[in-house]
């Protein structure tokens, strides 16, 4: 780990000022990902701005939306009564992530900003355009079992690792940020980026901007929701594929639907076309299969992740079946 400066501001403005003026500064909250990366020399910030003193951990309902502060802990959000009542899909996704110990340290803001778990990103002896632009993508021709089937580029085929983000993109959440130029709102679907030619940039946050909260609009997705995470052990593993499914069903007809996948792209992968294929249809396995087919259009696999071309649609069907309680 390199030598770094450390500060713990008590005012949001001080944190933003410090962040804005120093491109080598990083925000630290729970530190569950950043510290690992620093220990391995993957990230070498010269300054850490600890924001744990900022009053950003409230979970509240205002108007027609639930607002969750960036410092709310993953574990606390997953168990929050308001969240369980209004946004049970989010609670399920959070509980599918990491382990109880990590959820008790990790924050909502940190969760959405966590870095990819690509093996090549983590090992400084191997090439990675995300870690070291221009060094090449180790995964492209390498061990790409965990990698993307959508939206990748020849510079990077890594996937975004968060479970929470998959639920948030499905639920039409908005990220609230504050920066040197004031506050702004970023729709969750536009928060993360595809790799393109600049895989080193995970998100559309501008220099000096701080995530302060996430807002989720109320919707009729409280009963028929399911977050399915397929992984290589029963807990504490990143998703091979995950699916956030939310349905509003009336008289066995799907009135509204939300669908997103994790483990398939550089960002949480919203499936709007597949949602359209669900709406107005009966809640049957047949309908779900058709939607899964739509969802998979454009998917392309690499040497070791071809299984995802089958696992992903199967998982969509399974998640929708569970959400709709269709046996």
């Amino acid at each position: 780990m390199n030598q770094f400066q450390y500060m713990r501001p008590t005012k949001q403005k001080a944190a933003i000022d410090a962040l804005a003026k120093d491109p080598n500064a990083k925000i630290i909250a729970g530190g569950t990902n950043l510290i690992d990366l620093m220990k391995r020399g993957v990230m070498t910030p010269l300054k850490l701005i600890d924001i744990n003193k900022l009053p950003l951990n409230k979970i509240e309902h205002e108007g027609n939306s639930t607002r969750i502060g960036a410092l709310a802990l993953n574990g606390a959000v997953a168990e929050d009564k308001l969240v369980l009542e209004k946004q049970p899909l989010l609670a399920q996704a959070l509980n599918a992530g990491a382990s109880a110990q990590l959820r008790n340290m990790a924050t909502v803001g940190g969760n959405m900003l966590q870095r990819t778990r690509c093996h090549y990103f983590y090992d400084t002896a191997l090439p990675c355009n995300k870690r070291e632009p221009g060094s090449g993508c180790g995964a492209l021709e390498g061990y790409n079992r965990m990698h993307a089937i959508f939206g990748f580029s020849d510079k990077c085929i890594a996937v975004h690792p968060s479970d929470m983000s998959v639920a948030l993109v499905a639920l039409d959440a908005t990220v609230l940020v504050s920066g040197p130029k004031g506050d702004r709102r970023i729709p969750f679907a536009e928060f993360h980026r595809l790799p393109g030619d600049t895989p080193q940039q995970d998100t559309n946050l501008a220099q000096g901007e701080l995530v302060t909260a996430v807002e989720i609009p109320d919707a009729a997705f409280t009963k028929h929701v399911h977050y399915l995470k397929v992984r290589e052990r029963a807990s504490y593993a990143f998703a091979l594929v995950s699916v956030a499914a939310a349905l509003s069903i009336d008289n066995n007809t799907i009135k509204d639907a939300r669908l997103a996948m994790g483990g398939v792209a550089h960002k949480p992968w919203r499936l709007t076309e597949a949602e359209k294929a669900l709406i107005g249809k009966p809640a049957t396995e047949e309908t779900f299969r058709q939607a899964a087919e739509v969802a998979m259009r454009g998917a392309k696999a690499f040497k070791y992740n071809a299984y995802k071309l089958k696992l992903a649609p199967n998982s969509i069907v399974q998640a929708l079946k569970t959400a709709a309680a269709v046996a």
Binding site: R117, H119, G142, E232, R233, A234
Partner: peptide, 25 residues
């Protein structure tokens, strides 16, 4: 444990990538 033979180097080499069973297993 998986080696990337191009580099002769392990690519799954921590407890997140190399899966020992957890209690839930």
């Amino acid at each position: 444990a998986v080696i990337d033979d191009r580099y002769g180097r392990y690519v799954t080499k921590d407890l997140a990538d190399y899966h020992v069973p957890v209690h839930a297993d």
